[in-house]
């Protein structure tokens, strides 16, 4: 076994990145510690809390349950990229209005998880929203304000009937 670094080439938030990484480094540690993208958080390192949620090739994944080297050749999007691109603007505004965050540690993962539902063609109800975010821990809000915020965006996009 070696601590050797392996070459990795991927797109992160629209930028091509060519670098090297140790095999054992998971994606969230790579993004945080080696790409300075600290908006993605580490909450449990065993895939339960959802704080490390990022998008790989357009789908949300747990950043702690994927090795960085596995992201070779993929497109990775983090909260920083999704925020700067404006794709989260409505949802961020709704979270702000509803105070759907307190400490904010879960928020990046929560936003990306909710965004996947809003961008899908699934029917959306409060129950569906709760199901979608059921793998994202929030210890501050009690979740209701988050559900309110996501529901508001869904209604704005899809009309009052959902």
């Amino acid at each position: 076994m070696t601590a050797a670094r392996m070459p990795i080439s991927l797109r992160i938030n629209g930028e091509q990145v060519e670098t090297t990484v140790q095999a054992r480094t998971n994606l969230v540690d790579f993004l945080r510690n080696e790409q300075q993208l600290t908006g993605t958080h580490v909450g449990c390192e065993h895939g339960v809390c959802g704080a490390c949620t990022v998008r790989v090739d357009g789908r949300i994944v747990r950043g702690c349950l994927m090795l960085a080297i596995q992201a070779n050749g993929t497109t990775v999007e983090t909260i920083e990229g999704q925020s700067d691109s404006g794709k989260l603007e409505e949802l961020q505004a709704a979270f702000h209005r509803h105070n759907a965050l307190q400490c904010g540690f879960c928020t990046p993962g929560m936003l990306l998880t909710a965004q996947e539902l809003l961008d899908s063609d699934k029917p959306i109800t409060r129950e569906v929203i709760r199901d979608q975010i059921s793998g994202n821990y929030c210890r501050c809000t009690g979740y209701q304000a988050i559900v309110d915020a996501v529901e508001e965006v869904a209604i704005a996009r899809r009309g009052a009937s959902l």
């Binding site: 095999a23 054992r24 390192e45 065993h46 895939g47 747990r62 349950l65 994927m66 090795l67 596995q70």
Partner: peptide
Amino acid sequence: LLAGGQSLIAALNFRLDAPELLIDIN
């Protein structure tokens, strides 16, 4: 073998498993 990794990588993170080699079949 590393497929989805949703249990294997959690076990590695916890140091419950310490293989010499991961074979990524993805």
